[in-house]
């Protein structure tokens, strides 16, 4: 008999019917989209992320300017990501900024993510207003390590993709029914730790800086 069989048998033998109270807590939804966006930005900023709200045409130019100011020279971007394309074009106008596409398995990629990249730029599946959270479903185009290994993570989010709460998001997008991806992530700030005498320090293992562009709809 296997360990599996014995464990399950013990659990089934011990089983007796029990009841539990049914509790449903209604989530409070912000009155309108603007309030929701405000709440989202505020919560993210509280968690030490930088948030820039702007029109969807302006962000590539804002980002290249910022990149040069802060010396974020070597950029990692995904492969064939439509929303990111304007930034690739903008980078072409600034010879000091170099672009690398995550276009091969990490083992054969011609850059080392741990040492050769200053910043990574990704899109975001959704935002959560309640906690100031970015929701990422990394995929073939924008793999998992992009939001983890480089010291700076820049994320682009459409304001219309902000939901009130995590519960609302998974129910509206029917996550359970549609099947989960290999990896789903909630990111609510730059990497941090308080493990040394409760003193908060940023950039524990992941990105030290999280910069979020919230693109206003027109």
């Amino acid at each position: 008999m296997s360990a599996r069989h014995r464990i399950l048998q013990r659990l089934r033998e011990a089983h007796r019917p029990t009841s539990w109270p049914a509790v449903k807590i209604e989530a409070s939804t912000p009155a309108n989209a603007a309030l929701q966006r405000e709440k989202f930005c505020h919560a993210l900023q509280n968690a030490h992320a930088e948030v820039i709200e702007c029109d969807s045409e302006r962000w590539p130019q804002l980002l290249t300017t910022l990149a040069k100011e802060r010396r974020w020279m070597r950029w990692l971007v995904g492969q064939e990501v439509e929303l990111i394309h304007p930034f690739e074009v903008a980078c072409g106008l600034h010879s000091e900024l170099t672009l690398c596409h995550y276009n091969a398995p990490v083992e054969t990629l011609d850059v080392d993510l741990f040492s050769d990249v200053d910043a990574a730029l990704t899109t975001v599946k959704a935002g959560i207003a309640e906690t100031g959270t970015l929701v990422l479903w990394p995929d073939e185009q924008e793999p998992r390590q992009m939001s983890l290994v480089p010291p700076v993570h820049v994320a682009i989010l459409r304001a219309s993709d902000i939901y009130a709460s995590f519960a609302q998001l998974i129910s509206k997008q029917a996550w359970a029914d549609n099947g989960m991806p290999t990896n789903a992530l909630l990111i609510s700030g730059p990497s941090k730790t308080a493990d040394i005498q409760q003193t908060l320090a940023y950039g524990a293992h992941g990105p030290k800086i999280l910069l979020v562009f919230v693109l206003r709809d027109r």
């Binding site: 398995p105 990490v106 789903a184 992530l185 909630l186 992941g206």
Partner: peptide, 23 residues
């Protein structure tokens, strides 16, 4: 820790799939 949410909530449902570039 008195946080509304932690920095990362990591949900894993599979190993690296064909075509995926890391994991």
């Amino acid at each position: 820790t008195g946080q509304a949410i932690t920095t990362y909530v990591n949900m894993i449902s599979a190993p690296r799939q064909p075509g995926e570039k890391d994991g």
